[in-house]
Amino acid sequence: MSEQVRSVQRTRFIAPRVERSLITAGHALLVVATLVAALFPLFWVLLGSFKLPADVMRLPPVIVFEPTIANYLTVIRDRFVFFFENSVVISGGSVLLTIIVGVPAAYGLSRLRIRFKKTLMLLILSVRFAPYIIFALPLFLIMSELGLIGHRPSLVIVYTIINLPVVIWLMRAFFDDIPTELDEAAAIDGASRFRTFMSILVPCARPGIATVTILSFIFAWNEYLFALILSGRDSQTLTVGLTRFLGGMEDAIRWGQLSAWSVSIVAPIVILALLVNRHLRRGFTGGLG
C-alpha cells in the first residue's frame, strides 16, 4: 500500500520505486520472523521426535540427522494408547453432552420470550471467566466424598464447565443470525416449536454446530487442571500422561520420547484445526475464544 509513501510531505533520498520495494521486503521479513516465532517450537519438537538420543541433546543443534521412529515405538509401549483412549472418550463424551444440552439452550436464549435473559447470559459468561480452581477443588472434595474420582463419566460431566458457556454464547449468535421469518413461516404451516427447531433451525445452524463441536473438542483435549485433580489411575488423559515425564525430564535420554509424546498429543488437533481453520477463526472471534 502507498500509505507509507507520502511523497508530498517528505524530502526524498531514494527513488519511490526503490522505497516501495524496500518496504515490501521489510514487511516480508517481518512476516517470516513472526511465522518462525510462532511455529519454531512445534517444528523443533517434531524434529526432536525423530532424533536418536545422541542427536536430540547435541549442541550446536543438528538439523540433518539420521531419522528414527524408535521414540514413537517407545511411546506406544509406554501406554500411550491407554491415555489416548481416555482423552478421546472423555473429550468426545463431554462434547456430545455439551452439544446436546447447549444447542437447545442457545435456541431458547435466542428465540424464547423469557425474563432475566440478559442476566442468565451474563451468569453463563461468568462461568467462562471464573478461575477454574474455584470449581476444581470443591469438585474434588465432593467427588472424593462420593467415590467418583477416577471414573470417566464424572470427568465427562465436569468438562462441560469449560465448553457449555462457549457453546451457548456462540450458538446463540448463530441462531440470532437466522431470520425469524423462517420460524414464522414454519409456524404458519403448522409446525410445532420443536419441529421448527429440529428441521429448520438446526440444519440452518449446521456450520455453527460444526464450529463449536471442533472448538469444544480442542478445549477438552487440551484441558489439564481438572484432569490432574479429578482423574484417578483409570481416567488419566494425555495431558496428565505427558506430565508424568516431568520428574525425570533432566534425564536427556528421554528427550526424544518426550518429543514423540508431545507430537502425538498435538498432531490430531493441529491437523483438525488446520482443516477447518476458517470455521475455527469465526469461533474464536465470534464469541469467546
Binding site: T34, L35, A38, L39, P41, L42, W44, V45, G48, M57, L59, I218, W221, N222, Y224, L238, T239, L242, T243, F245, L246, M249, E250, A252, W255, L258, S262, I265, V266, I269, V270, A273, L274, N277, L280, R281, F284, G289
Partner: peptide
C-alpha cells in the same frame, strides 16, 4: 493467518513442556 493460529490451539501443557525442555534447559 491460518498458521498463526497454531500456538493458540496447541495443548498448553505440551507447549510448556517443550519450552522447559528444549529452550529453558540451563545446559542444553
Amino acid at each position: 493467518r491460518a498458521l498463526l493460529t497454531i500456538p493458540l490451539i496447541m495443548t498448553p501443557v505440551v507447549s510448556a513442556t517443550m519450552y522447559r525442555v528444549f529452550f529453558y534447559d540451563a545446559d542444553r
